[in-house]
Nucleic acid binder design. Structure first.
Length: 478
DNA sequence: ATGTTC
């Protein structure tokens, strides 16, 4: 492990005050020795830098998928006092409300035999993918405002889903507090043609099978059983969210001196939560988050139609288990030093993992804790877990979000050949469809930390419980 | 992640 870091538990480490100047609280992160081998010193310094921000509460935190990001580390969690604290786009990420949803089907693997290629090709035809992908939907500028306020509900009201879907989304698919007037014309321009599109990079729509039921009782409550075919949607707010982040980072950088905020890194640009600039970022961030929920809802709808047509199953037989955000800032109540207080929790590449009885999780899951969905990298397992009371105590109800990159995109392109990768996955029975083989190289399994190990750490550390392991059968990518 | 360095 790095010098100056203290072990405080089997899988828990502390970055003490003083690791960088002006830290207000210690840093804490969760990691196994094997994951420690790929730990970047720069990411730990970022974790420590976050601890210098005004109003930070308890600890600057990171999950075992920690890696170097813009200002804040990816895999980072930080909570701020509502009066003294700040809000920062770097603590959310550029892809606002990047997230994941998991849907069950009534099919088994055998039902797919001989039809898997056709299924993947049909999904690829139905869901626009890739950088700059354009929607088949036509929405007006007025409708975009509705999307930014109503989120997934906008899609359901248009017939693209059911009201039961909404109950199974974090925030029921729309956070309150959207302020469309804080979203620039440029961001709107990027958002209008992209609703219902998957995007690129690690985003995907994957057909999976529930291979291993680790916790049968909870799996039953979540409505998933061994051998069941499922599909998973992983995407975010596309160009709109990216533009919102870009626009507001510029504004917040310009306001730092006004609020007397001194930063160790300009990428931590922030403003007091209750300031005009802070409120404007929050209002715009909510718009982008709601756009992302609408986006995943539309994509799920299109995929349901494909399954329906190909296998003759009813739309309603494909049940959304849950939809989680992993790049967002939220106002939540948490116990801090024995007292309940409202804080602004930033999760950047981290998933909410509220335990049994926590406010804000669907009633049907209240007694068992919320579903947590962790996507794997291409060709590797994904996981369904549940939130825990330990997460509530230690990480403001948060856990990891996925694998975490270990090789840059440019290095990956040099070291991996996309065509060989596609053929190798085909040999394992996994059908991959993308616009080009070149795009696949950047997302090869070996450029990510092993997701199974990341998930094992959060499970062992008690931040969430593994319920089901899912294996890929086929995937569409940008 | 991203009209992949406005």
């Amino acid at each position: 492990m790095l010098e100056g870091i203290n072990k405080v538990g089997d899988l828990e480490w502390e970055v003490p005050i003083g690791y960088v100047p002006n830290m207000r609280v210690p840093g804490r992160f969760f990691l196994s020795p094997s994951l420690g081998e790929t730990l970047e010193e720069g990411a730990i310094r970022q974790l420590a830098n976050v601890a210098t921000l005004p109003g930070i509460v308890k600890h600057s935190l990171a999950m075992p998928d920690i890696h170097w990001g813009y200002g804040f580390p990816i895999g980072g969690v930080a909570a701020f006092d509502m009066t003294e604290g700040v809000i920062s786009p770097g603590g959310v990420g550029f892809d606002i409300n990047c997230g994941v949803r998991l849907i069950t089907t009534p099919l088994t693997e055998a039902d797919l035999s001989g039809k898997k290629r056709e299924l993947i090709e049909s999904l690829f035809a139905a869901v626009p993918t890739g950088v700059g992908a354009k929607s088949t939907l036509r929405v007006s500028n007025k409708e975009l405002s509705d999307i930014m306020v109503d989120g997934a509900r906008w899609a359901v009201e248009r017939g693209l889903g059911t009201s039961a879907d909404l109950a199974r989304c974090e925030e029921e698919g729309a956070m309150p507090g959207a302020q469309p007037e804080t979203v620039s014309a440029k961001a709107r321009q990027r958002g209008v043609p992209q609703i219902g599109t998957l995007g690129a990079g690690n985003h995907f729509l994957e057909v999976q099978v529930a291979r291993e039921i680790v916790n049968p009782e909870v799996a039953k409550a979540f409505g998933i059983s061994e051998g069941q075919v499922c599909f998973m949607v992983h995407c975010g707010s596309r160009g709109l969210g990216h533009q919102v982040a870009t626009d507001h980072i510029r504004v917040l950088e310009g306001a730092l001196s006004k609020y007397g905020i001194q930063l160790p890194d300009r990428q931590l640009a922030c403003a007091p939560i209750d300031s005009p600039e802070g409120r404007a970022y929050y209002g715009a961030m909510v718009c982008a988050a709601n756009y992302a929920w609408a986006n995943r809802q539309v994509i799920m709808h299109e995929a349901r139609k494909v399954f329906s047509q190909l296998f003759g199953i009813d739309y309603d037989e494909m049940r959304l288990i849950y939809d989680v955000a992993h790049n967002v800032a939220k106002f939540e109540r948490h116990d801090v030093d024995g007292a309940s207080m409202e804080v602004c929790v930033h999760r950047k590449g981290a998933t909410r993992a509220f335990g049994p009885g926590a406010a804000g999780i669907p009633r049907e899951y209240a007694a068992i804790g919320q579903p947590v969905i962790i996507p794997g990298s291409m060709g590797t397992s994904s996981y369904l877990l549940r939130g825990t009371s330990t997460a509530m105590e230690k990480t403001f109800g948060s856990t990891c979000h996925g694998a975490g990159r270990v090789l840059s995109r440019s290095k990956a392109k040099k070291e991996v050949r996309g065509r060989e990768l596609r053929e190798q996955l085909a040999g394992e029975g996994i059908v991959v469809r993308a616009h080009s083989d070149a795009a696949l190289a950047e997302e090869a399994p070996e450029v990510y930390k092993p997701s199974g190990e990341v998930v094992r750490v959060v499970h062992e550390a008690g931040l969430s419980d593994i319920v089901v392991r899912l294996e890929p059968l086929g995937v569409i990518k940008g």
